[in-house]
Design a protein around this nucleic acid. Structure first.
Length: 336
DNA sequence: TTCCAACTATTGTTTGCACC
DNA sequence: GGTGCAAACAATAGTTGGAA
């Protein structure tokens, strides 16, 4: 555990060579107080964010509880350490910390347009195709930035047709060995849908993009259990269209930095990460007067808390309209 | 067979999200 | 505003496949 290592290092600098769990509760209280007040980042000796300090404290709590059943969060003897944490957090807040300087931001309509113009989104290359599939899944299915995409299997998305003959994709997260559905936070009560927009150019029609992606995947990887996102095949000897993707899942690093990489290549502003896609979806729905009760059904949020605190943004300020992202409201035609 | 580019998983570090 | 957990990102080492 890294935080523990940091604390142990601090103790060594004070000539305290015992392991943390071997130190008496009273003395540890003193050490922890001092540590919390004086700890600095390795990189630039700057102050940590208040939430980082909190996480460190939580790490110590977990470690000590496991080692000797001691709780620095609850036990009276650790009051001083807790107070030190509180006052340090207040101090940092006063210094202007804790304002989430790195929080991801939603994409504006112009930014999405730019991504298509620069062919970072679209169907012109294998990277662009993968980016577009990922982007569509994020803004239509409301998938969280990283893990949900990584866990996604090919069989989770099914192409369907309604009574009017309209085509759509439906996201159905099946239970597998690794996805047992035991985490109440992950529950989506409805299956989100992504409708075809035949009037759009093909690269902006989500159902067309999905079908195109299916064609470009190796046949063997179109089974239900196969990973949804495949590694791009950079092989130059492209003898057939089938070799756009490898027969293996894309790596975590590539998948996790998909949006960031696109933003960098397109020269977009900072703080655009995978989570920006999800924020874009929620911002778009909010700005188009979709009721919060409906949005949470789609996003998988357990409560409406975040949405009730979200005010619609004024026109031309980081607002995506439905025209560019497709008719997102249609995904809210759920069967409850 | 060797080299190299481009990828992958793993581990470490920092921070934000979701909920209470 | 407090808390638990996971995401996001970076560094590193290992792997793979094409080219020479």
């Amino acid at each position: 555990m890294l935080d523990i290592g940091l604390l142990q290092q601090f103790l060594s600098s004070k000539n305290e060579l015992r392991r943390i769990e071997d130190i008496s509760v009273e003395q540890l209280n003193e050490y922890l107080s001092e540590f919390i007040i004086s700890v600095r980042k390795k990189e630039d000796q700057g102050e940590y964010e208040p939430s980082s300090l909190r996480s460190m404290f939580a790490s110590f709590e977990r470690y000590l509880k496991k080692k000797n059943g001691f709780s620095i969060m609850m036990d009276k003897s650790s009051e001083r350490a807790r107070k030190a944490l509180q006052s340090k957090q207040k101090e940092l807040k006063q210094k202007g910390k804790g304002n989430k300087p790195n929080a991801s931001v939603a994409l504006s309509e112009d930014e999405v347009k730019l991504l298509y113009e620069k062919e970072l989104l679209g169907i012109s290359s294998r990277e662009a195709l993968l980016n577009t599939v990922w982007f569509n899944n994020t803004i239509h299915f409301g998938l969280r930035g990283c893990k949900e995409h990584r866990d996604m299997c090919w069989g989770d998305v099914k192409p369907c047709k309604n009574a009017n003959g309209e085509e759509y994709l439906e996201y159905f997260e099946r239970q597998t060995k690794t996805r047992t559905g035991d985490n109440p936070r992950d529950v989506r009560k409805v299956t989100p849908k992504m409708y075809a927009i035949p009037t759009n150019p093909p690269e902006k029609d989500p159902v067309f993009v999905y079908k195109f992606y299916a064609e470009k995947r190796p046949n063997e990887m179109n089974t239900d259990e196969a990973p949804f996102y495949l590694a791009v095949n950079h092989c130059k000897k492209v003898s057939s269209d089938k070799s756009w993707f490898k027969k293996s899942a894309i790596g975590v690093n590539t998948l996790n930095s998909l949006m960031k990489r696109m933003a960098e290549k397109a020269g977009l502003g900072p703080n655009i990460s995978n989570h920006s896609g999800r924020k874009t979806m929620m911002q778009t729905l909010t700005n188009n007067d979709v009721p919060p009760t409906d949005i949470v059904q789609l996003s998988g949020h357990a409560k409406r808390y975040e949405l009730f605190n979200r005010k619609p943004k004024p026109a031309n300020e980081n607002v995506s309209s439905l025209s560019e992202l497709g008719d997102l409201q249609r995904v809210l035609h759920f069967e409850y």
